[in-house]
């Protein structure tokens, strides 16, 4: 008798942890890739996996996981949970994003777990569950092409923010900014603080410099750099800037709020209360994913709220874009 699914997934996790994420084409620095890898896999504790296995519901027969070139670890937790629940998984990757998928699939198959990595568009054929991550328009297009009996879980682009009230939490906030080079939907696109910017800015700058020394920033794309120069110009005109090699802090008035990330860049906005921030965020509220905070918050129940430093280390059991996603990885129990 082979190992149970729980044991197999635990071994799969352990096998993945042995891999050096610096070998993957992530765009991150070697240290940055390792940080992201460790963050992603550390959430799969034995207890967390056991709790998923105990969830009620009938497994889907076959799931197709379709990912754009987003956070390179994002599909892994879906694979883990679906495999744990007894679903065969096909991971459809885009060009250049297949290194992690191939390694993950090979390691899974060695343990008898049915995970396949492919570039083929036929990945969705025969799937009764499709999980798609990408632009909203891509997900809408996919939804229109799937047979009605196929269940689709779509996750479009989102953003997260931070509520920072204590200077001694600057390093925790810097970890949230450093992970994935601030490119993920769990990266703080805006940091709201009641601290005076003249104090908060230098403190966060120092923390980002420390983070840069430990996990250097990876490659900048042309678009990233050009967009950063645009935001920098705005900050120099209407706010304050603190910059160093590989990082920047821009202090901006709330009137110039734009919840868009820029690699290793903190956009810092003054707000006396979190409610002030939420009012400013109102136009983008449907796309707000998570709030990292160092003070108690009581937001709407659809938002994920977590301590600073853990924004990019989400537990398995959490709200994913307002959805307790692990419950949706199986058909509802009849």
């Amino acid at each position: 008798m082979g190992p149970t699914r729980l044991t197999a997934v635990q071994r799969w996790r352990d096998a993945l942890l042995q891999r050096d994420a610096a070998d993957f084409d992530t765009g991150l620095s070697p240290a940055g890739a390792r940080l992201a890898w460790t963050h992603a896999l550390s959430a799969w504790t034995d207890d967390a996996l056991a709790a998923v296995e105990a969830l009620p519901g009938a497994p889907y027969r076959r799931a197709a996981l379709i990912t754009a070139r987003g956070a390179f670890t994002a599909p892994l937790e879906w694979c883990a949970v679906l495999l744990l629940r007894g679903t065969a998984v096909v991971w459809k990757v885009t060009d250049g994003g297949d290194g992690v998928a191939a390694v993950a699939a090979e390691a899974a198959r060695a343990l008898g777990l049915p995970l396949e990595a492919t570039r083929s568009r036929a990945a969705v054929a025969g799937a009764d569950l499709v999980v798609a991550m990408g632009a909203d328009a891509t997900i809408d297009t996919l939804r229109a092409t799937l047979p009605p009996e196929t269940h689709l879980l779509g996750f479009g682009h989102r953003f997260s923010v931070a509520w920072w009230t204590r200077l001694d939490q600057a390093d925790a906030l810097a970890v949230d900014l450093a992970a994935y080079d601030t490119r993920g939907c769990l990266s703080p696109a805006a940091i709201f603080t009641p601290l005076p910017l003249a104090v908060a800015g230098p403190a966060l700058a120092a923390a980002l410099a420390r983070a840069e020394a430990r996990w250097p920033r990876g490659a900048l794309s042309a678009v990233d750099a050009a967009n950063a120069r645009t935001r920098r110009a705005v900050a120099r005109t209407v706010g304050q800037t603190w910059e160093g090699p590989g990082w920047a802090v821009w202090g901006l008035p709330l009137t110039h709020l734009e919840p868009v990330t820029s690699p290793r860049t903190a956009s810092l906005y003054p707000a006396q209360r979190i409610d002030d921030a939420l009012v400013a965020l109102a136009p983008w509220r449907p796309w707000l994913s998570s709030i990292g905070a160092d003070a108690p918050l009581h937001p709407e129940p659809t938002l994920r709220v977590c301590p600073l430093g853990t924004l990019q280390r989400p537990p398995l059991d959490r709200l994913h874009d307002g959805l307790r996603w692990i419950e949706h990885t199986a058909r509802p129990a009849r």
Binding site: G70, A71, A74, D136, F159, V223, W284
Partner: peptide
């Protein structure tokens, strides 16, 4: 246009942020 980014992540793009603000 400038070449698209390498793995750009899943956060909102500048264009999306503007479009959603309306």
């Amino acid at each position: 246009r400038l070449a698209g980014s390498p793995p750009r992540g899943c956060s909102l793009t500048v264009e999306e942020a503007w479009a959603r603000r309306g």
